[in-house]
Amino acid sequence: MKKIKLATVWLDGCSGCHMSFLDTDERILGLLEHVEIVYSPLVDIKTFPENVDITLIEGSVSTNEDVVKIKKVRAHTKTLVALGDCAVTGNVPAMRNPFGVEATIDRAYFHLVQHNPLTPSEYLPRLLDKVVPVHDVVKVDFHVPGCPPPADTIYYALTELVRGRMPDIKLMTRFGK
């Protein structure tokens, strides 16, 4: 059987959702018999491939580069999954929205600094005025809430998607916890 191509992408999140995916522990070895990880922070492939079957997205969209990235991921992915509250709602990163970028930068790089206060801007992406969830930018096929979603939920959702079925996770999620 041809292996399902899986990608995992990290936008503005804390990596906790990726860690929860790893919390499937040794079940991941079984998964790897049906699934090939074609792009992920865990492997060394640096170009997002064409024709990915399933992509898990952790994190919200918070820079201009995130926007470019997520559009490219969408274009090359059959089933796009928003994994965790940051991707689903904006969650913690979106807490900066009411303050605005300028005030947030001001606190970090001027108020709390003793040497060379300035706004970092070289080689770096531009911060969006407003942090948004993934579905604000591209169509999302499936949402898995939780902060992070439990490993069992991720495992169940993934194995269903791998089999070509739409998972029903209503009873397996915890919202904002």
């Binding site: 804390c14 580069e65 969650n91 807490m95 900066r96 303050f99 947030t104 001001d106 911060l127």
Partner: peptide, 29 residues
Amino acid sequence: TTQFRGFEKFCEGRPYYEMPSLMARSCGI
């Protein structure tokens, strides 16, 4: 390091007892 998050600002105005759980969201590892 190409991402900036702003925890030091967006915790402002929130009660102290939320801090451990909120600030821990800076890192899932």
